[in-house]
Design a protein around this nucleic acid. Sequence first.
DNA 1: ATCCCCTCAGTTAGGTAGCG
DNA 2: CGCTACCTAACTGAGGGGAT
Length: 438
Amino acid sequence: MNGLAMQSTGVASFRKMTPGMLESQRLAMANDIVKTTKAEVAITLKKAAPALGIDGTAYHILDILIGLTRADDWRQDRRPLVAISNDKLAEYVCRSTRTVIRALKRLVEVGILAYRDSSTGRRFIYRNGASGEIDRGYGFDFSPARQRIDEIKRIGEEFQARVRAEQEAKRTVNRLSRAIVDACRTGQSEGVDCTVFLEELSAIMETPMLLLERADMVSKLYELVVEELAEDKTGDEQTASDFKEDNQMSGDHDIGVTPYNITTHQTPIKSNKRQPSNDSYSKTNSASHEAPKIAPEKDQSSKFSAKSNTPAQLQSPQSGQLDNGLSEHLSAISIGLIDSATTETQEMLGMRFSSWVDLSQSGEQLRLAIGLSEDGWKQAIMALGEKMAAAVLVVTVEKTLRDPEGISRPAGYFRACVDRAKDGKLALHKSLYGLALG
DNA sequence: ATCCCCTCAGTTAGGTAGCG
DNA sequence: CGCTACCTAACTGAGGGGAT
């Protein structure tokens, strides 16, 4: 056995080293340990998984492995290790051990896990009975993910932004190419020769290029066509009304105005803090799937919050009424319901929510899990009270865990929920029933 | 426009032999 | 036990018709 090589990298000699693997092993040996929590890493990894090229079996295995780490082992003075045999994993994910091996290797290659092989290849962890700390452990080490947490977070966000931009671009291309054809048809019928535009359009559509580029080119062509036809009209008063009518018929006359604010999509979440500017964000976003879940009554709440600077201000004038609304909502929610609705969150934290105290004590962890600022959390507590705020938070975390791609900005989602709750419009018990059933 | 079937290429899974 | 290399089988998803 090659003892030396093993000691320096933690990788058994039977493994064929690759650059990606080497990098992960290097990260696992870092000295300046990044401070984070199991919850934060779990959510970050789940969200970034597609961007990292992790899906199917590898994703499933990642999920299991994170679940197996102990929350305490993510402390800076410890190491997030996990030990499980390939056979067990194969059984859990209903795949062959061969496939499991490949998936694990993939997780190492992308810089999430590092191998920590024992001399025999067996994976096991010995803990100190008293403190629960790991004395000796062999298996997989999540340190690479821990060290790269910020980078991985960014990768996930950029990926989601790109996917959204591409969807938007696809829609733009579809819409505008139809609009161009329509406009040209109208033009032709009025004696304007539009074949150049149509040829240009099909040239754009047939030339292989990036979706975003194509959307850009189609937008420009559309503007050109509109301009051209408009000019023609001004020279010919008689047909001017016809064009107008037709333009409206296609229902796209406002399109030229909003061709391309997609690139400004990565609006930082800060600007979202109850500025009216938050409207622009939610609007551009409402094009994607996540919106329907929280979007509906945005208009009122944002108008309201734009005026008032602190939630406290909001409470004083009509606190009686507000309290009523809140406690009414709260009374529909029992800790038992929360307990049975938030299985993933509990698994992630490695604890149960047997009492409101348990839940309240997890607030900080949950807050970090979704990247909610301390300020945002305090404001939520001030507005809703500790119990209700914690209940909303845990629902947000649970939803994020179950469908990481569905909620692109959990902290933003949480704030929106808090706003709704303040207005007495958040039916949290319904969400909880849904989670408990599904 | 929608559904269904088919093909084809690329991906993923499983099996076996052999090593430490 | 856990791994790799190599090979074959099975699956998956995109794209192309054709029928309704």
